[in-house]
Design a protein around this nucleic acid. Structure first.
Length: 850
RNA sequence: GCGGGCGUGAUGGAAUGGUAGACAUAUCAGACUUAAAAUCUGAAGGGCGUAUGCCCGUGUGGGUUCGAGUCCCACCGCCCGCACCA
C-alpha cells in the first residue's frame, strides 16, 4: 500500500500535463470554445492566499469545461506598471523595470506549483514594450476618433515633494512621505471621453444577466443618472447670470443662498481680484481630492457680496456664497441651497446664520426643521407650503416633474438629464507607466506620434549610461536629459514628447482582448477575437466592481468603434464572479503605552506566547503584512502540497464570501486527501465479490455526480466539497464489491479533479483509469438512479414537527393524508380535536392545521 | 457624508417559503497501543426529564403565511467602496 506524498506526485503530474500540452489553447472549430479569465495579478513578488483562492476558482471552472468537451482558453499575465515599482526604487535603489521583471519571475515560480491549467504560452506583462506599444496604437486610434482630449483637472499636490500624490498617499490631509499639508491643484491632463457612453454603459447593464446584481447596482449608482432643472439666477449687478443645476427644483421656495464651487469661474475671478477670497479658496483647497474628504470636511463658506434675484420673485434677493462642499465636476458647479431639506445645506446655514425655510411637511407633523433636515423618500407624500406650481399634497417625484414642467412652460428653466460619471483622467506624472504617444510642437501644437514610431519606449537610463535617479521627487521623464527631444511628426521641427504616462487602469482595460492573440502585430487579431471573445467567465475581487469593469466596458466599445474589436465584444465579460478574501486571525498584545503589538501565527500556541503572555485574538481580518496575520502559500505548499491548499481555500465558505484561513483547517484538508488516497489503495488491494450493497453505493455515486457537478457549475464549490466529504464517508463504509467500489472511487477521483488535480491523476492511475483524468470525459449522472423509491415526510401540527412517515414516492395525496392523521404522535397532538385543514406538499411535508 | 454588503451552535458554514444546524473544525467519550501519534467508532444548539418526549432557539421588535433563517417594515451591530492603490 502506497502513502500520499503530495510533493512527489504534484511535480510528476505537472510534468505529464506539460508534455501532453493539454492546456495550450488552439483555435479549433470542432469544439465549443470557453474563455475563463481571472483578474491578472500585480507582480508584488509574492503570491498570497487571495491569489491561490482566485486562481483555484478559475482553474476549477477551466478544468471542468475541459472535461466537458470545451476548447478552453485560460491565460495568465501581469498587471506590471504602477507605483509600487517606483516606490521600491525610491526606497531602496534599483530600477523599476528590474524590480518588476524579477518579481514576475519569482511569482511565476510560486504559481506554477499550484498546478493551474494555464496556457503559459500566452503570458505577457503590461510593461512589455510589445504590449504597451499596441496600447499606444489604441490610444492614437481613440484620439483620432475623438475619444481623447485634454483639460484641466484637480490633483493632490505635495508642495514639499513637488509631486502629485495618489489618494492613498494622502494620510489625514498630509503627504505620506513629506508630511506636508496636501493641496488641491489644477494640471492639464489627458482624458478619455467615457461620458459619451454614460447612457449606453447604464442601459447595457440590463443585458448583463450573469453579473452579480450588486455590481450592476454599484455601476448604476456610479454612473448616477439624474433628472433635474437647469436655470440661471440673474445677478443684481447685471453680470452674466449664474447657471445652477438642481435635482430638487420643487424646493425652490426654500432657497436661502446660491453656492458656487471654489473652482467655479466666478470664484476664480474673485480670487484673482481679492486677497481675502484667494486666502479663503486656498483654505478650501487644503485636504484631499476624494469625495469622502470633501463631503466630511467641515463646511466652509465665504460671502462674495454678489446678489442674485429669485426667479419666482424679483424682489427676493439671495446672497452668493463660495462653499467648499460644492464640486465643480458635478452639474454646473453652482447650486441653490435649500437647508430645510438637505443636511449639508442646513449645517452650512446654521453655521453662517442663513435663513431656513420649510417648503413641505410630513402629512401629520408640521414641526419646523431645527437641526435635522427633513428629507423623506421621494416616493413619500408630503404637504406643500404655498407651492408655486400649485401643489398641495404630492410625492417628491411628482413635485419635481410638475416643477420642471412649470419652469419650462414659463420659460425660465430647462429639464436636463445629467450623469455623475466624470471623464476618465488617464494622465499620471510618473515614470513607470505606458508613455502617452503625443508630441508637443511649438508650431503644430499637440501632435499624435506616427504609428510606425511605436512603441515609444521608456528610457532605461539617462541615455549616457548613467542610471536614472529615482530618489529625487518628480517625474524622471520630465528631467531626462534627452528623452523628450524628438522631431515633430507633422512638420519635422524639433519638438518635445509628452511626459505623462497612462493610468494603469488603461493597461487592464483591454488585456483580456490581447490574450486572444498575444503576439499579434496589431492590438488584436480580429479573427482570433471573433473566435475567442467574449470572456465566458471572469473572476476577480469585488474591489474592482466599479472602475476596472466600467473602464473595460468603455474600452471594448471604443475598440469596436476604432476597428479593434468585433461588435459582439462590446460587453466583454459574459459572466462575472466576485470572490471574497482570505482572512486570518490577528494575534495581538499591548505594549506599555497600550499600543497594539502583533505576533505571527507561529509564535502563538493555545492563545499564548512562548513566555506565557495571553494573546488577544481578533477574528477574520484581511491578511496584511503589518498585522502579521499573513500565511504564505509557498510554505503551505511545501508542507502539505498544492492540492491541500486548493482544497481548503474552496471548502469552508461560499466563494463570494471571505474565507478564514486556519491551521487546523488546512491540516484537516491534508488528512482528508490522505484518507482518500488510503481508501483508494485499499480498494486496489481488495478482492470482494459483487453483492447487494453495490447498487446502494452506485446510487450514492450518481447522487454525488449530480450534486458535485451542480455545485461546480453554479460556483457552489463549498457545497461540492461538502458532498465529496459525504460521498467519501459513504465509500469508506460501504460493504460493496471491489468492482463497484473501484468504479465509485474512479468517479470520486474525477469529481475531485478540478479541485485536487494532482491527487486525482494519481488515484485515476492507481484505479486503472485510461489516460489523464484531466481530459477524461466528465461523468454524467443517471437520472433514474437519483430518485429514491420511498421518501420520508415530516408531519407538522400547526407548523410544529410532531412525527415523520416513510411512504412510496408516488403515493396519492389522500393516502398520505390518511397515513399522517393515523400516526400516534399526531393523534396525541390533536388530542381529540378535528383538523380544520391538512396541507400535503408531495415529497416535502404534511401540515395538519387545527 | 453618500453608496453597497453581511448578522444562524464554541468556530467556518448548510437549508427552491416546508424536519434549522448538512459538511467541516474545535471539544468530549470509546476502540487499537506498554504509551503516544496515526487511524477507526460514537456523542454533541440551550433548558427540563431515566425515558417515549416537552419547552425555547437563526442580531432586536413588529407584520404576511397553514408554515418564515428565507418575504415585508422599522431598528441595532459589523464590514467594504467613494474616481491618482492595484
Amino acid at each position: 500500500m502506497s502513502r500520499y506524498s503530495a510533493n512527489e506526485i504534484e511535480a510528476k503530474w505537472q510534468e505529464a500535463w506539460d508534455k501532453a500540452g493539454i492546456f495550450v489553447a488552439n483555435h479549433k472549430a470542432d469544439k465549443p470554445k470557453y474563455y475563463v479569465l481571472e483578474m491578472f495579478p500585480y507582480p508584488s513578488g509574492r503570491i498570497h492566499m487571495g491569489h491561490v483562492r482566485n486562481y483555484t476558482m478559475g482553474d476549477v471552472i477551466a478544468r471542468h469545461k475541459l472535461a466537458t468537451g470545451h476548447n478552453v482558453l485560460h491565460p495568465m499575465g501581469w498587471d506590471a506598471f504602477g507605483m509600487p515599482a517606483e516606490n521600491a526604487a525610491m526606497a531602496s535603489g534599483g530600477h523599476p523595470k528590474d524590480w518588476t521583471y524579477s518579481n514576475i519571475a519569482d511569482m511565476r515560480g510560486q504559481m506554477k506549483p499550484l498546478g493551474l491549467s494555464i496556457d503559459w504560452s500566452r503570458e505577457f506583462a503590461t510593461c512589455d514594450p510589445e504590449y504597451y506599444g499596441q496600447q499606444q496604437a489604441l490610444f492614437l486610434d481613440m484620439l483620432e476618433a475623438g475619444l481623447v482630449y485634454r483639460k484641466n483637472a484637480v490633483v493632490n499636490w505635495d508642495p514639499v515633494d513637488m509631486t502629485v500624490l495618489a489618494n492613498e498617499q494622502v494620510e489625514n490631509g498630509r503627504g505620506w512621505r513629506s508630511g506636508a499639508l496636501v493641496e488641491r491643484r489644477e494640471l492639464t491632463q489627458w482624458f478619455f471621453k467615457i461620458s459619451d457612453y454614460s447612457e449606453e454603459l447604464l442601459s447595457a447593464l440590463d443585458t448583463l444577466d450573469n453579473w452579480p446584481a450588486k455590481v450592476r447596482l454599484m455601476q448604476e449608482n456610479w454612473i448616477g443618472k439624474s433628472r433635474g432643472l437647469q436655470f440661471g439666477f440673474e445677478r443684481t449687478d447685471g453680470e452674466e447670470p449664474i447657471t445652477v443645476y438642481t435635482t430638487r427644483p420643487d424646493t425652490l421656495m426654500g432657497a436661502s443662498f446660491v453656492g458656487i464651487s471654489p473652482d467655479h469661474p466666478i470664484a476664480k475671478q474673485l480670487e484673482a481680484e481679492s486677497p481675502e477670497v484667494a486666502e479663503f479658496v486656498a483654505e478650501c483647497r487644503k485636504g484631499g481630492t476624494t469625495e469622502e474628504a470633501i463631503e466630511t470636511a467641515e463646511k466652509l463658506g465665504y460671502d462674495t457680496g454678489i446678489k442674485v434675484k429669485h426667479p419666482l420673485d424679483p424682489n427676493w434677493e439671495l446672497p452668493v456664497w463660495i462653499a467648499n462642499f460644492i464640486l465643480m465636476d458635478y452639474g454646473t458647479g453652482a447650486i441653490f441651497a435649500c437647508p430645510a431639506h438637505d443636511q449639508r445645506d442646513l449645517d452650512f446655514c446654521r453655521k453662517y446664520d442663513l435663513p431656513v425655510i420649510d417648503t413641505f411637511f410630513a402629512l401629520e407633523d408640521d414641526t419646523p426643521v431645527d437641526k435635522i433636515a427633513f428629507v423623506p423618500p421621494k416616493t413619500e407624500k408630503v404637504r406643500w407650503v404655498n407651492h408655486f406650481a400649485g401643489l398641495t399634497e404630492a410625492t417628491g417625484d411628482e413635485a419635481i416633474n410638475a416643477t420642471v414642467d412649470f419652469a419650462e412652460k414659463a420659460g425660465w428653466g430647462e429639464g436636463v438629464t445629467k450623469y455623475r460619471l466624470r471623464d476618465w483622467g488617464l494622465s499620471r506624472q510618473r515614470y513607470w507607466g505606458c508613455p502617452i504617444p503625443v508630441v508637443h510642437c511649438d508650431t503644430c501644437g499637440t501632435v499624435p506620434e506616427k504609428k510606425e514610431n511605436l512603441p515609444i519606449q521608456l528610457p532605461y537610463d539617462n541615455g549616457d549610461g548613467n542610471p536614472i535617479d529615482f530618489s529625487i521627487p518628480g517625474n524622471p521623464l520630465d528631467r531626462h536629459p534627452n528623452w523628450r527631444d524628438c522631431a515633430c511628426p507633422a512638420c519635422g521641427a524639433p519638438a518635445k514628447r509628452e511626459t505623462d504616462t497612462m493610468d494603469t487602469f488603461v493597461d487592464s482595460s483591454w488585456y483580456f482582448a490581447r490574450f486572444t492573440a498575444p503576439r499579434a502585430e496589431t492590438p488584436t487579431d480580429l479573427a482570433e477575437a471573433e473566435y475567442w471573445m467574449n470572456v465566458d467567465q471572469y473572476i476577480g475581487g469585488i474591489e474592482h466592481a466599479i472602475l476596472h469593469l466600467l473602464y473595460s466596458r468603455f474600452f471594448a466599445r471604443a475598440m469596436n468603434v476604432t476597428g479593434n474589436l468585433p461588435k459582439k465584444a462590446i460587453e466583454p465579460f459574459d459572466a462575472l464572479f466576485t470572490q471574497g478574501m482570505v482572512t486570518h486571525e490577528i494575534y495581538q498584545t499591548r505594549d506599555k503605552n497600550d499600543r497594539p503589538v502583533y505576533h505571527l501565527p507561529e509564535e502563538v500556541t493555545d492563545g499564548k506566547l512562548a513566555d506565557g503572555t495571553e494573546v488577544e485574538i481578533i477574528p477574520s481580518a484581511k491578511m496584511s503584512k503589518s498585522k502579521k496575520n499573513v500565511v504564505d502559500p509557498v510554505s503551505i505548499i511545501s508542507a502539505f502540497g498544492a492540492d491541500t491548499a486548493r482544497w481548503f481555500v474552496l471548502s469552508d465558505s461560499p466563494p463570494e464570501r471571505d474565507v478564514e484561513w486556519t491551521a487546523s483547517g488546512a491540516e484537516a484538508a491534508f488528512k482528508h486527501l490522505s484518507r482518500v488516497h488510503r481508501i483508494a489503495s485499499e480498494i486496489v488491494d481488495s478482492d470482494i465479490p459483487a453483492n447487494a450493497e453495490d447498487k446502494i453505493l452506485l446510487r450514492e455515486m450518481h447522487k454525488a455526480i449530480h450534486d458535485v457537478s451542480g455545485g461546480v457549475e453554479s460556483f457552489g464549490f463549498n457545497a461540492s466539497i461538502a458532498k465529496l466529504y459525504a460521498f467519501t464517508n459513504t465509500l469508506a463504509k460501504s460493504k460493496a464489491g471491489t468492482d463497484a467500489k473501484r468504479q465509485a472511487a474512479k468517479t470520486l477521483a474525477q469529481l475531485m479533479s478540478p479541485m485536487t488535480p494532482h491527487l486525482s491523476e494519481e488515484l485515476w492511475q492507481m484505479l486503472g483509469g485510461e489516460g489523464l483524468v484531466a481530459t477524461a470525459p466528465w461523468p454524467v449522472a443517471d437520472e433514474a438512479m437519483l430518485v429514491d423509491d420511498t421518501v420520508t415526510l415530516p408531519i407538522q401540527v400547526n407548523g410544529k414537527r410532531r412525527a415523520e412517515i416513510s411512504v412510496a414516492k408516488d403515493l396519492p395525496k389522500d393516502e398520505v393524508e390518511k397515513l399522517a392523521l393515523s400516526t400516534e404522535a399526531v393523534q396525541r397532538a390533536l388530542d381529540g380535536a378535528t383538523p380544520k385543514k391538512v396541507i400535503v406538499v408531495p415529497g416535502r411535508i404534511v401540515n395538519v392545521v387545527v
